[in-house]
């Protein structure tokens, strides 16, 4: 049986945020809620790395373990979903999740925390597939339409991969075999200079040489 997974290729992600935009547009997500976002490490420094993060649909999901009303469930495809009719918006899942996936709309009076909202792997929720109620609560159900998540299908550099874990792993493996890893990655040596990538060593100024004033 397929086990749906996301993988983000940090060597390819260019922090364009098109995955974030695609997700918000596809599911008509309100202000203040981001089911997906891009995180950049060492921003502005040569060698910065970005990855797109959302619910990773854990096989042993901590949100499921801590939920006091047991609103989470896992589909046959390994997608972790939740029932908004059961959710009480307590926020325990938010503390438990290592990826910061659970989101809480705060459009009520006095900033009241609403029902939890998170990435559904574009698989909707417990309502009838393709129904208006499902779209209102959970967004579009692309998986039941025979499509993959919008974020991955819209990714401009194909950094974000989504689908059956075996297929995604095969795609990623073939990439690494073709392009190498670390400084061997295409374009890396050209941009930053690297002996490992076959670039000549950088020219050092001769000892005692003085710069022109």
């Amino acid at each position: 049986m397929a086990r749906m997974k996301f993988v983000c290729d940090a060597e390819r992600c260019i922090e364009c945020n098109s995955c974030v935009t695609a997700c918000k547009n596809e599911h008509e997500i309100p202000w203040g809620v981001n089911r997906r976002r891009v995180v950049t490490l060492n921003d502005g420094v040569p060698g910065e790395k970005s990855i797109s993060v959302a619910c990773m649909h854990c096989s042993d999901a901590p949100c499921m373990a801590v939920c006091p009303v047991n609103c989470f469930y896992r589909t046959d495809e390994g997608v972790v979903l939740h029932n908004k009719d059961t959710c009480i918006g307590c926020g325990y899942c938010s503390y438990a999740c290592p990826f910061g996936a659970p989101q809480f709309p705060s459009d009520g009076a006095f900033g009241v925390r609403g029902k939890m909202d998170k990435c559904t792997f574009c698989a909707g929720g417990p309502e009838e597939h393709g129904s208006e109620a499902e779209f209102e609560k959970y967004g579009r159900n692309r998986l039941a339409e025979g499509k993959l998540p919008a974020c991955a299908e819209m990714c401009s550099t194909k950094a974000l991969l989504a689908g059956d874990g075996d297929v995604v792993a095969d795609i990623f493996r073939s990439r690494v075999v073709h392009r190498g890893k670390g400084a061997e990655v295409w374009g890396w040596g050209t941009a930053y200079g690297s002996q490992q990538a076959g670039q000549p060593p950088q020219q050092q100024p001769a000892a005692g040489a003085k710069g022109k004033s």
Binding site: N70, T75, D76, A144, E145, G146
Partner: peptide, 25 residues
Amino acid sequence: ELHSGTNTGKPAYAGTGSNFVAPGW
């Protein structure tokens, strides 16, 4: 007693019945 999930829906491969379903399956 713990109950495992609240899923009452059909499996994803059942389709949505809408015109947006991808062709080919």
